[in-house]
Nucleic acid binder design. Sequence first.
DNA 1: CGGCAAGTTGAGCCAGGTCAACTCCGGTGG
DNA 2: CCACCGGAGTTGACCTGGCTCAACTTGCCG
Lengths: 251, 251
Amino acid sequence: MPQRPAKKCLHCSMHRKTGNFCSHLSDAELENLSNKSRTATLKRGEALHSADLLTWPVVAISSGVISMQHLLEDGRKTIAAFFMAGDIIDMRGISSRNRGHLIALNKTDICRLSPTAFEQISETNLDAQRVIWSNLRTQNYRAMDHSADLAKKQALEKLASFIFECRGRQVVDICKNSVIIPVRRIDLAEYLGMQPETVSRCFKDMETRGIIEFKSISHIKILSIPTLRRIANGDKNTQNMRPSCKVLSYG
Amino acid sequence: MPQRPAKKCLHCSMHRKTGNFCSHLSDAELENLSNKSRTATLKRGEALHSADLLTWPVVAISSGVISMQHLLEDGRKTIAAFFMAGDIIDMRGISSRNRGHLIALNKTDICRLSPTAFEQISETNLDAQRVIWSNLRTQNYRAMDHSADLAKKQALEKLASFIFECRGRQVVDICKNSVIIPVRRIDLAEYLGMQPETVSRCFKDMETRGIIEFKSISHIKILSIPTLRRIANGDKNTQNMRPSCKVLSYG
DNA sequence: CGGCAAGTTGAGCCAGGTCAACTCCGGTGG
DNA sequence: CCACCGGAGTTGACCTGGCTCAACTTGCCG
C-alpha cells in the first residue's frame, strides 16, 4: 500500500513545485527515493563535508542558499556558484581533488538523494531525466555567464548583472521590480570578486542615481529597469539618462 | 548490412578515442547518428550561427577550439569558456536570449549531431548517457573553477592556473612538463579577463624567474611544477623559492 | 541595554589597464 | 630572393578603479 506522496516529501518545495525533479516522479519512485534518502537542515556556515559527499554525492536543495567556495593559500576566499531551491548538486565522479567546499549561507533544507535510486530514476523516467539534465545545463550556462561577468565587467556592472540574476532566479516574484538579495553583502562580494566596501559604494551609487531603492537591506526595488540593464550590459553612457536629455561626453 | 563503423566517423577523434561519446555507440547507433548528422570544418573566426543552433543545438567537437564569447555594449569582449576535442556543446532549451556567440579560435572540426538521434541514444544507451552526463558535469565544474579564478586571483596566478588547465585538458601529453597553449595571446587574455599586454608581462616574469621556458610561442615547458602550483594557489611566498633557502619577508 | 557581527564611509595607494611605439614573423608578389 | 605588408606580440610610461586599512554606524540577539 503506497502512501502517496511519501510523507516527508509532502511539504518539500522540490516535490511541490512543477519544474523540479521530484515532482515528475511516480508514486512508487517517490516512495522508493524518499525511503532511501536523508533530509537535513543546515545552519549558516555549515558545510556539506566531502566525506559525506562520497557516499551521498547527489544533493537536492529545497530551500536556502548553498555556496561553492574556493580558498586560496593566503586566505582569499571566493564563491564560485550559488545553489538555490530546486537545484541539484551532482558531485558524482568529481574527483576528491580540491573542488571547493559546499557551505550553506542561510538556513538551508537539503535532501541527500540515494545515488542508486537517483541513478535508476534518471535511467528509466525520461521526464525526470530531462528535468535533471536541464537543471545541469542551466547551472552550466549560468556559470559561464558568471565567468563572463567577472572577466571584463566593472564593479557597478557586475552588481547590476547580479541584481538581474537574483531577479531571474527568485522563486516567488512579488512583482517584476522587486528583488530579494538572498545573501549577505560579504557573500555577494565574494561571489562577484570584489570587496564588501566596493559593493556598498556601488549600491549607494545606484541608489543616489535613482536607479534602485532599498526597501530593506535585502529587498531592492528597481526604479529604472532599462538603465540598470544598460549598466549590466556595459553601456558607459548611463550617467546622464535621468534628465531626459543625453549629454554627450566627448570633447 | 551495417558497414561498421560509419565511414565518416572512421577517422574522427570523437569515435576513435575512448572516453568520448561516439566511441560508446553500437554499430547501428553510430550508423544512424552518422547518417543524420553533419560534419563541418570552421576556420579561425567563423561562428556557429544561432539560426543553425536552433535546428542543430548539439555539436560535438572533434578537433580545434571553440570559444563562447560575450560582447559588451562598448566593445569589450570576453571568452566565457573554451570547448575542445571531445566536448559536446548542448544548446537545447537554451533560450535564444543573449547566451554568447560560439566562435572558432582555430581550424576546428565539428559534427552537428542530429538532435533526435542524439536524444534517442541518450535515452536508451546507458553507457553513452553516462559519458554525455559526465562531460556536461565536467564543463560545469570547470566553469565554476574558472569563475573562482577570475574572481579573486591576480594576473600571475590566473595565468599559472591556466597553464595547469591546458595541461589537464590536452589530449596528447608528450610529457608531463610540456604544455601547448592552443590559442592566441589575445584569446587567452579575453578568457582570463586581462589585457594581452599583461599576459605578455606575466609570461615574461615566469620565464625570468625560471619557472617556465618557451620552446615556441605556444609550447611551454614547466621547469618547476611546485612553484607554478603554489602561484596558482595564491601563495605569495614564491619569490624566493629559487635559491633553496626561503628568505622570510616579514619585518 | 550591552556586545558583537555586518555594513558603511573616508583617505591613500598600487596592480593592472591604457595608449603608443616598436619588434617579430609568416605570407605575398615582383 | 628580397621587399613589403599586416596582424600578433612585446615593451615602456602613465593613470585610475577598486583594494586596503581604519574608524565609525547600524542592527540583531540574548
